[in-house]
Amino acid sequence: MRYIKMRSTVFLFIFLLFGINELRADNDPDFYWEPKLSTSYKLSTRYTLQAGANIRQDLQWGTADYSGIRKAEAQVFATRATFTGNKLSLGYVYSGSNQFRPSRKVENRLTFQYKFKTSFISNKFSHRARFENRLYTEDYFTRLRYRLSYSAPINGERLDEGEFYWIVSDEILWNFNNKNYDVENRLSLGLGWLPSKKQKVQFALQYRGSDINTSEVGHAVFLSTAYYFGI
């Protein structure tokens, strides 16, 4: 137990070190809340369908920058699992509207995704690579994303029903046909609860540094809450 706790503390420490370093450079971060509802349906042990919806609520009430609900998204994904446990997905995301984000209008996003796991000193790491085609009325962007995440149960070696887990992740996003070729980093620390085998509740605090390869770095802090259930 002591060993597991020590291991968790080391990962947490590394995460905080990164986070503090990123926020130290911050001048004026934006704050948002992103609630999410997500569900999945297993067609077989190989094929799964997922659907989800989320909004982005501005938390800067009373300021000139307050923008209410900034964004609304709905998504569907189809996933095929390989024998080795890797997952290949194709997804569609509908994002925003004129009402929410007049400058960007509606986005239709096609996503290709590949997920796999690796082991390092008895720890399992999850990797997710995404290729996104982002289609707007008058624009088209492509984006590459890579996320590394690590999750561990708070009590026990394996996550069982009724138990809590913590999760840390870092994701790099690269808009590679944009004018500026901007890069974004998303660092996240979360706490989750598995009330039953088919349900999950998760809270996470996420720092987003946008345009980090330019002189105009933007900072935002997201509180994300998610409820997941399997059908």
Binding site: S40, S151, I167, K198, Q202
Partner: peptide, 11 residues
């Protein structure tokens, strides 16, 4: 073995 959700990244 009945696997619980082993992927803790909610979509």
């Amino acid at each position: 073995i009945k696997k619980v959700i082993d992927d803790n990244e909610v979509y």
